[in-house]
Structure formats: C-alpha cells, structure tokens
C-alpha cells in the first residue's frame, strides 16, 4: 500500500482500543476510501504524544496535524470553548445538542483564529459530584474534602465562590487518595468513574449534573485548507457519518455505567430545589469573575440565549 499523498498525524489522550479510537479509525477508513487513498491518517493514542498542551505545541511546529483534545486542555488556547462547562448550566442531552449546534459556528471561528479546523465535537458526558460520604446539602459539600483537576479556571473559581478550597491532585493520585481519605469528593462522568475505579470508593453520587464535559477533534487549518475541495468534503462527510455514532456510544456507556454502579451499591442522592437554586446563584456569581479573562461575554450571552430558546420550546422538543 503506497503512502497517502496527504498524511495527517493525529494524537489523542484516549487509550488504544477505546470507543473513541475505534470510531476514529472507522472515520479514517472512510476518508481513505473516498479519496482513493490520497488522504490518510496515522493515530497516536494513549497520550504518547503528551497532553493537550504538548499536542498543540507539536501541531504548531508541524509534527502533528490534528488531535482529539479535551475541553480543559484546549481551552487554554481557545478560551471561549469552555462555555458549555459552566456548572449547573446544561441539564439534559436535549439542551446539550441544541446549544452545541447553535454555538458551532462561533466555535469554528475561534478555532480557525488559532489555526485549528474544528471537525467534530466529542463528548465525555455529564459530570457528577461523587463522594465517600453522603452529601446532599451545600454545607455537607463544603465540609467534605474536595478534589479539583488542575488547570480548569471554571471549576477553580466556582469552588472558590462556594467557599471550598479544593485539593489539586493528578488523576493517577485520585483513587489512592480517595481510599486513604485525603480527598472525599471528586467529579467525573459515570463512565469515567468506572474506568478509573473511583466508584469503588466514592459511593454517593449527587444525581444532578454538576457540569458537562466534552472535547473536540481538530485538524491543522493550513494543512486542511491546502487539500483539494473534494477531499475536504470527504472529510466533513465522513465526520458527519461517524462522530454522531461516537456520541451515541458515549451516551450508552454512561447509561450502562449508571446501571452497573447502582448494582454495585452506589447511592444516587436527590437534592432539593432550593439547594439547586442556591448552587445556580453561586454559579452566576462565578461567571461574573470569569468574564472576560477566561470567557468572552459574547459567547456567554449567546449560550444563555440558546438555552432560553430550547427551554421555551414545547416539551419533547427536538428528537435526539
């Protein structure tokens, strides 16, 4: 098999053999077929090329030509991209899909400014607060030892407003620290907490989405722009075929994880309306400190506008 005329070297933090990589390979195969083998992809999974920042640096110098980035990682480059991660903002997949579609043109523009061509959005899922102790009120949350991932200004300023000083630990230290009691409350998607085994220690899950986590698949803009029109269309078409499937699979694994966790004795805690309202008020306070340093007012207003729009639609709304 001859080497492709246009080879894209793509890196990702997702492990080899994961749904993300499998689905990406399906996408790559379709592009290769449709372009008669002229466009090819080579994947470096499992973070072998480094984290988001290293991947972006390598794209800048041309060693890589694309990557699957996490929201937290790429937001240091494209700050507005973090808008959907604001806590207690998006509440259902319906809202997520509607807001996402509405924001897509703005996102594409912001990424292009940084020489990135946004090909598709990916999903981690809704993030839940999970704890080793039962936490269903704000004082209980404040009292527990909170973990926070490093380098995420949104969660940092939100926890500060809530009066919580989180303990920052690298992901590999989280599980052992949950066990030893160094931290008590962590944040992750349901699937993530199964993959990392956090659910074996943090057995209480607050059953209101704390936030939404997602990512992006982006290519080098210049390299993408230099492709013939037909090739670019082939990439977009293949992305439209395969990334919605990935989204669907991600949602299925999160649902499956909820079942598994419930079977293994995880308790899903209900919290009352007033607490939710209080958490949302605190969120609005936090957002004020984030604009414009970490987020533009423009993107925030557009997001809230879209949210009002979808919430005012008759029930049922847009089918998924």
């Amino acid at each position: 098999q001859a080497a492709p005329k246009h080879l894209f070297k793509i890196a990702s933090l997702a492990p080899a053999g994961s749904v993300w990589i499998q689905q990406f390979e399906n996408f790559a195969r379709e592009v290769e077929e449709k372009t008669g083998g002229e466009v090819g992809f080579r994947v470096y999974p499992g973070g072998v090329m480094g984290d988001d920042q290293a991947m972006f640096r390598k794209m800048r110098v041309g060693q890589l030509h694309g990557g699957g980035f996490t929201m937290t990682g790429i937001s240091s480059v494209v700050p507005d991209f973090r808008v959907m991660a604001i806590p207690f903002l998006l509440e259902s997949y319906e809202e997520v899909d509607f807001v996402k579609e509405g924001l897509l043109p703005a996102f594409e523009e912001r990424f292009r400014e940084k020489d990135l061509e946004l090909i598709a959005l990916t999903e981690v899922g809704f993030i839940y607060a999970m704890s080793t102790t039962s936490i269903s009120t704000l004082p209980e949350l404040q009292k527990s030892k909170n973990w926070s991932p490093a380098g995420d200004p949104i969660s940092e300023s939100y926890l500060t407003i809530l009066g919580i000083t989180p303990v920052q630990l690298a992901i590999p230290d989280v599980l052992s620290s949950l066990q030893s009691g160094l931290i008590e409350t962590v944040y992750n998607s349901l699937y993530g907490s199964i993959v990392l085994q956090w659910f074996t220690k943090a057995r209480y899950v607050v059953d209101v989405p704390y936030g939404y986590a997602y990512g992006v698949f982006a290519l080098d803009r210049k390299k993408f722009a230099s492709l013939p029109e037909a090739h670019r269309q082939a990439i977009d078409a293949a992305a439209a075929h395969h990334f919605p499937v990935l989204l669907q699979k991600t949602r299925e694994s999160n649902e499956e994880s909820r079942r598994v966790m419930a079977e293994r004795g995880t308790e899903f805690l209900k919290i009352d309306k007033q607490t939710v309202q209080l958490l949302q008020e605190k969120r609005d306070e936090a957002v004020k400190t984030l604009i414009p340093g970490s987020l533009s007012k423009e993107i925030y207003d557009r997001t809230t506008g879209l949210l009002q729009e979808v919430r005012s639609k008759p029930a049922g709304g847009k089918p998924n």
């Binding site: 480094g50 984290d51 920042q53 290293a54 640096r57 390598k58 110098v61 041309g62 060693q63 690298a170 230290d173």
Partner: peptide, 17 residues
C-alpha cells in the same frame, strides 16, 4: 520535522508531578 520538538518533549517534564 522541526527540531524544536526535541525541546517540546523535554518541556513535558514540567507536567510530571
């Protein structure tokens, strides 16, 4: 490949807790 990749890799050491 741009040789600055050598230093990009070295700089990853600052991400190793």
């Amino acid at each position: 490949i741009d040789v600055s990749v050598v230093i990009i890799e070295m700089s990853r050491l600052a991400d190793t807790p």
